[in-house]
Each structure stands twice: as C-alpha cells, then as structure tokens.
Write a protein that binds this DNA or RNA. Structure first.
Length: 566
RNA sequence: UGGCGAGUGGCCUAAUUGGCAAGGCACCUGACUCUGGAUCAGGGGAUUGAAGGUUCGAGUCCUUCCUCGCCAGCCA
C-alpha cells in the first residue's frame, strides 16, 4: 500500500543513464514518461517491468509518468480492460495523479495533422486493398512498388480523406498513407498506413469516428502532445523508431520526444502472449484471467504475491537490450523475501494424522503462547489451545524412518512447536494397514517447547488441537507449463500444460484465527509455505491458495533420492 | 536473403568509457536455529560468441566471421 516507499537504490540501467545525462545537459527540464497499455487484455508481469521502469524513472528523477490508453483499435478494445488495468497499476503501487489520458482524446488533433501532411504532399489516400498493398510492399530483399494512387494530387487526397471521415466508404476501401520511400530497406518506411476505415463503436468516442489512426501515427504524436521526454518501449518497436522520428520531424508537434527500447520480460515456465493467455481462459485450462497460475497481475495477486515482491523482482532483473529469459526462481525468491519479513505465521495441517497424548489429562485445555512472526517481534504472539487429541502432518511421521528423516517415528521424541516434547509409543493402523493414529506421551517439564535439562529434539512440528481445528480447502499450485521454454521453436505451448498445476486438498485443518484473514493478505502456514485466502473463501468454507512453498531442503533431498533410484 | 538490434559462469545484470571480470538468482559445504524456514560463513563454476589486429595492457577500439532476436497487419 505504501507508494512512498523509495525503491531500493535502483541500479543505473542504460535508460536511466540516458535520462540522467539528458537532465544534466539540459536537453530536457523534467522527465516525463508514460505507460501506454492497449485496453485489449489484462496486464501481466511483463507489463510490470514497463510500469516499474516508467513510473520508477519519473519518481527517481522528480518527473511524472502518465497512464495513457492506446485505444486506437475499437475492434479489440473494451472498457472492462481499461478499468482492470487501472486497478492493477494502482495495486502495483503507482499513481499517475491527474495524468490519465487516452490516445482517443487526440483524435481531432491527429486528424488535423494528417490533413497537414496531405497538404504538404507527405501523405496520400490509397485505394489499393489490403492484399494489394501487401503485394506492393515488396520483400526484405526486393524494394516495394509504388501504388498507382501515390501520385494523386493533394487536393484529391484531401477530399477523399474528408469523405473517409464522413463515412462515405466501406471498411478497407481506402487508407491514408505516408509518402516516404517504397524502396526503403526498413519496411516500416515503405509508405506506412496512417489511417484506416473502421466502422466500429469506440468505447470512448462512440460513433464519432469511422477512421482511426494506426499505432504509428498515434503513438509518437500523443507523446509529443503530452510532452513526453522519454518514450520507453520494447525491442520490437526498434524498427519503428525511424518512422516515429519521421512523423515528429514532419509535423508541427509541440515537443520532441525520443523513443528508447528495452528487452521485454520473459520468464521460464511462463507464457506471456495475450493470445495464448486468452486461449487458456477460453478453453477452461484455468479459472479465469485471475487464476492463481496466470502470469497476469490479477492472477499473481490472487495467488498471494505481494506487489512489493514483484517490484523488487523487476529491480533485480534490471533493464537491458539483450533478449533474455529470466528463471521464475528469481521471482519466487523476491516474493519469499518480502513474505518472510511480513507474513504472519499460522498453523495448518494439510494432510492430518491423529495424535493422542496418552498421559495428558482428558478434557484439559492449555493456552500455548505462539510467536506470530519471528522476523518481526512487533507482530506479537497469540494463544493456541493444546489438548489431548491433536493433528499433525502425516508427512511428519514415518514408521520406518529413512536416513536423514528426523521427524516423528516410533520411540522418537520431537517438539511440538511452542507446546511440549512428545514421544511416539504406538502406531495404530486400520484394516488396510494405513496409519490412522499415533499414541504418544508428553513431557510436562517441556511446556512452552524447552526442556529444563537442555535436550533438543531434532525436529519441531506444527500441530492443531483436534477439538478446535477448523476445516479448510487448500489449493496447491505449480507451474502451469512443464517446460521452462513452453512452445520453444515451432512447438505448441499447450503441449507443455502441466496436468498437476493445481491440486485441491479438501480435508485440511486450520487454526481458528485463519478464518479471519482477509482476502489480499498472505500468511505463512508454518513449515509449509505461504498461503492466502482465495476470493472463493467464506467463513463457512475456507479456501486457501498456496502462494509458494518454503525453501524445503528435505523435499529436495527426497527428490534427489528418487532420482538416484531411477 | 535486406534492414535493425543483441551476444559476459546454468539464469539475469555490472564493469567509473583501455587497467586484476563484480553482484543477484540457482547450486554445493559448514555454523546457528523452537519453522529441515530465516540468518551467517564459505565454495564450485567465465579462455567475456569465434578468429585476427591495434596497444605495455582489450569485455571495452578496428576487421572479418558465427549465432540469436525483431521487421514484409489497414494489430499494438
């Protein structure tokens, strides 16, 4: 929530370096950046990098950052996305103040500039179809051919352009093109389309327009209108920069923005393409755009990732022009790092195994004082009821303990966290041979979890009083995609779908206070990991999502053991 | 194939513009521990894509080559 938090001293990446120099040498007075999403989908972690970069630079250099919707294609854009995007940017911790803009706010100005371009002989109306334009464009190795309409007079183009606006022509009938160079080695300069006819209802301008500027014609000019000093975008726009500059140079724009490109964020085991994300949602592979397995900001939020962790991660990754893929482990590290510091500790048992303390008085209840967060003394303590019948984690017991397993086993003593030392004396099984109950004794002298004689069990277990535990559903999450590079090459990312990316556990038990955790807060289930209530959760039916496991060296050992045998 | 861009331990990023290749993640040890967490200490791992050249000295400058990415939407 705290947007004031000065980001950890940001490393000076090459863009910040440019900004610093421009400021120092007076090429610009105040730095003005912008985050320009198209409202045609949900924001994902890749956008977070851009958001942190743009808003971060503005904050660090005492400038400002605009939120501008690049809403130039009414065929794909929706109000729903506009709202979700704003909520996500705010949640991430950034504030655009009064600087909320829409490219559609500039449609009239853009139109006037287009007219000026036509009058100057630098743009013309082309009657060629989309297919014909493509054919005329040439290839990487062959120059393009000029459209027969390229030599059309300015007055004629002007007349046609006005009639395009007036709605006289059908979609695709004509376009406005810049007159640059059909032989340019950069294909973006081969008379790029500036306006197209689209008889579509625009979320903001309604039916006011039936011609819409393309990205190339809208973006740079919008930057200029807003006085953007540094227009930061991803690498794939590099080839557009000459066109960006050409338009700025040939139009009477009020300011001179410059475009800089950086490598977009890619993550292992993750797919970021809006098309694929949409398919995941539509084909029902996930619960929605905000499914905890989705890389969307809403998904990460539902998963319990704190915004601060995402910001830290982005800072950790850095900014460069190298096309790269970051290991998700780095994101997870950043998230664990803030959660370890901030998450309240609670007890929950995912796979309960009954324990009966035979020498503990029946009907007795003791309130044991438990630390809420050893990393943060100010988080205080709470009281947990301890009784004769308890639940522990089934994984915490082994009838025939293997080497290096130092939890509970027959004849072995362990500590129940903040309670007592207990020793297992008997294993009760059902007809099928499944362990259903452990008969144990406790040492009354170890109350609180410490022995007067100084003995120290090798393991400390979490536990729950059987009479007090409340039921809960817990959803475990793992990578959505098994392969670190889903769909690499010509593969289909859907071939990599992990069938076990979500595991729903229904028989879990939780300490009573867990019913009070609000959605949006992530807690630690001691020794298990970080968990947060899902929006599906209700007081009557608790549902928790596993954000991440704790770093687990025992699990790692087990996994290695399995590999050794294989 | 034309244009543009990028190559630094497994991954990400630095290197004060020519001066002992640094940090984070990951991995491995050990210490400590009422979370097999955290923390602390240590470790392995790089002929800086390759080959030449300039220089006392090159990740950095020059040449050639190789590899990868992006661009032929009336998407952004």
């Amino acid at each position: 929530m705290n947007t004031e938090t000065p980001a950890p001293p940001e490393r000076g990446d090459f863009i910040r370096e440019i900004v610093a120099v421009d400021l120092r040498e007076g090429r610009c007075q105040t730095v003005v950046t912008r985050f320009p999403p198209e409202p045609n989908g949900y924001l994902h972690i890749g956008h977070a990098k851009s958001i942190c970069l743009n808003f971060g630079i503005a904050r660090e250099f005492g400038g400002r950052c605009h939120l501008r919707f690049d809403d130039t294609n009414p065929a794909k854009e929706e109000q729903e996305y506009t709202d979700a995007i704003q909520a996500d940017v705010r949640w991430l911790g950034f504030d655009w103040g009064a600087h909320l803009y829409y490219a559609s706010d500039y449609f009239e100005q853009l139109y006037e500039w287009a007219v000026e371009l036509i009058k100057a002989g630098k743009a013309y109306v082309d009657d060629l179809s989309a297919d014909e334009i493509r054919e005329h464009r040439g290839t990487f190795t062959e120059p393009g051919r000029e459209s027969p309409w390229r030599s059309r007079s300015a007055p004629e183009s002007l007349d046609l352009f006005e009639r395009m606006r007036a709605g006289e022509f059908a979609d695709g009938a004509r376009v406005l093109r810049a007159r640059i160079d059909m032989a340019a080695p950069n294909i973006n300069l081969r008379d790029p389309v500036l306006y197209r006819i689209l008889h579509a209802e625009h979320p903001r301008t309604g039916a006011a327009w039936c011609i819409y500027p393309t990205y190339d014609f809208a973006h740079g000019q919008s930057d200029a209108i807003e006085g953007i000093s540094h227009s930061i975008c991803t690498l794939e726009f590099e080839a557009h920069r000459p066109l960006y500059d050409w338009l700025i140079d040939n139009l009477p724009v009020p300011s001179r923005p410059h475009q800089y490109e950086f490598a977009r964020l890619k993550l292992t085991h993750t797919v970021m393409s809006k098309r694929v994300l949409l398919r995941l949602v539509n084909e029902g592979h996930v619960r929605g755009w905000d499914d905890p397995r989705m890389p969307t900001l809403s998904g990460l939020r539902r998963r319990g990732f704190p915004a601060e962790g995402i910001r830290d991660f982005v800072a950790m990754v850095g900014v460069a022009k190298t096309d790269s893929v970051v290991e998700v482990e780095m994101l997870e590290h950043a998230v664990r790092n803030v959660l370890n510091r901030t998450a309240t500790r609670r007890f929950a048992v995912l796979d309960p195994l009954k324990v009966v303390i035979e020498n503990y008085p029946e009907g007795q209840i003791e309130e044991m004082e438990v630390t809420n967060n050893p990393e943060d003394p100010s988080a205080g303590t709470r009281r947990l009821p301890f009784t004769r019948e308890l639940w522990i984690e089934r994984d915490d017991f082994m009838e025939e303990p293997v080497r290096k397993f130092f939890r509970l086993a027959p004849g072995r003593e362990v500590r129940l966290r903040s309670a007592y030392f207990v020793t297992c004396h008997e294993v009760v099984k059902d007809a099928a041979g499944t362990v259903v109950e452990l008969r144990c004794t406790y040492d009354p002298a170890t109350r609180g979890g410490a022995a007067p004689d100084g003995r120290r069990p090798k393991a400390t277990l979490h536990w729950l009083s059987a009479a007090h535990a409340v039921p809960a559903e817990v959803r475990l999450y793992d990578h959505l995609l098994r392969s670190p590079y889903p769909g690499a090459g010509d593969g289909d990312p859907f071939d990599d779908l992990n069938p076990d990316s979500e595991t729903v556990l229904r028989g879990c038990l939780a300490e009573p206070s867990l019913a009070d955790v609000p959605v949006g807060e992530t807690v630690q289930f001691e020794r298990l990991g970080y968990f947060c209530p899902d929006p599906d959760s209700s007081p009557a039916a608790l549902v928790f999502n596993r954000t991440l496991t704790l770093r687990d060296t025992w699990a790692k050992l087990q996994a290695q053991g399995r590999q050794d045998k294989a």
